[in-house]
């Protein structure tokens, strides 16, 4: 369970570093976000939701049975669009409106 920050996509805005509840993300000397100790990540996905550049990917560690899927989030007003790239490369998007209560 952790995140990977894609350096080439990061715009260095620092919003991920601000919200991480473990303060695990830093802005490195070259102006990009880095997570020096990814094993400390709780997996709350706060940074993934915050990132305007879709540079942060959420994945499950192999030690907990992760199979290589990657998840990013696009925010569009009250909508959260969760893009999940499956291990075979296919994409599934789940859109949730924060104005809609959960079915369960």
């Amino acid at each position: 369970m952790s995140i990977e920050i894609r350096r080439e996509a990061c715009i260095g805005c620092g919003q991920c570093a601000d919200v991480c509840p473990g303060s695990l993300i830093l802005i490195g000397p070259e102006g990009h976000a880095v997570i020096p100790r990814p094993e400390r990540c709780w997996g709350c996905a706060s940074c993934v939701k915050e990132c305007p550049a879709l540079a942060i990917e959420f994945f499950l560690g192999e030690d907990m049975g992760g199979k290589g899927g990657r998840m990013t989030v696009r925010r569009d007003n009250s909508l959260l669009r969760w893009d999940i790239v499956k291990p075979d490369g296919s994409l599934k998007t789940i859109t949730i409106d924060s104005r809609d209560p959960n079915g369960y």
């Binding site: 369970m1 997996g43 996905a45 959420f58 994945f59 499950l60 049975g65 992760g66 199979k67 290589g68 899927g69 998840m71 959260l80 969760w82 999940i84 499956k86 291990p87 599934k92 789940i94 949730i96 959960n102 079915g103 369960y104």
Partner: peptide, 17 residues
């Protein structure tokens, strides 16, 4: 959807497996 709103790892687990 419900798990994405509180524990997104579980939804990822379901979909990637």
């Amino acid at each position: 959807k419900a798990y994405l709103n509180m524990a997104p790892s579980q939804t990822l687990r379901w979909i990637e497996s």
